[in-house]
Amino acid sequence: MKNRPVKVILWALFLGVLVFYPSLFGLYFTNIFVIFSIYALYATTFNYLLGYTGLLSFGHAMFFGIGGYGTAIALERIQGLPLLPAIIIGALAAVMLALILCPLLVRVSGTAFAMLTLAFGQLMHVLALKLRWLTGGEDGVGGFPIPPFHIPGVISLDITDPKKFYYFAMVVLALSMWVIWFFTKTPFGSIQTGIRDNPRRVEYLGFKLPHTKAVVFIISGGFAGVAGSIYALFQNLISADDAFGIGNSFAPIIMTVVGGIESFFGPIFGSAILSFIDELTSRYTERVEIVTGLILILVIMFAPKGFSGFLRFMRGKWLSPPNANPALEETK
């Protein structure tokens, strides 16, 4: 890799900005950044399905939601539960849900997969509204105790302080994203992209399609659960409409499309762009959905590769000789 030093400098710069961000921009923008990061992870798990495996989920909010509820209910019901186990409970709840749905969902693909995930997403929404004894109905679960992030002898961080929460959330979210990124680089990740391009051929090469899809689905769901769990901790509240609403299933779709399906960082760009647009438009109007809807339509019609496609195009134009191979970006 010839431009390794450039890369290292860029990453160091990025890390530096991350560390000093709260001091530089203040509380308001720190909180916006936390929400952006939560959605960046959430959208990344979505794109792990769509961009890397070709599976379009229309009910991804069910994993986000169950992760949030899992953590919230655990903290509410179990006295003195430490923080990390609470997050793990959220993630495991999402993994369980994925496991239950697997036998049904791995048999289908394309539109049928989208429909089924949509329907099950709605089912989860209805359940969250109706199982009042567990979920608190429309009010959701809120005001649960938030334990400090505590590892004996190493660290103890009171994350009810927004600034400390920021650092805690950044570590968990960045770590999760890194793990997913690493997964895409493994042999399994390469089989996954094979499924996206040509599921039939994958079978004829000796891979068991349903099992492979199931593992992808579980990983994606589990990490979406982590995103939901951090979200619940951040708000100290998780409610049915917020977590399981159809809008929350559409959010990662829009972010991924706007940011670029064919790139790992696309959903992260998308999350940033939409947070930005949200922040801007919500100052002038309450009708944010019309703006995001229009953006979605425009991107799909005129720039299907999204923002990262645009970046690649610019880089190809100015920085290096014409790059004949866009797919290379995936592997390098």
Binding site: L56, F250, E289, I290, T292, G293, L294, L296, I297, I300
Partner: peptide, 11 residues
């Protein structure tokens, strides 16, 4: 097409 109809619905 699916994603496009999502956009149309939002608008």
């Amino acid at each position: 097409e699916l994603l496009l109809t999502v956009g149309i619905g939002m608008v």
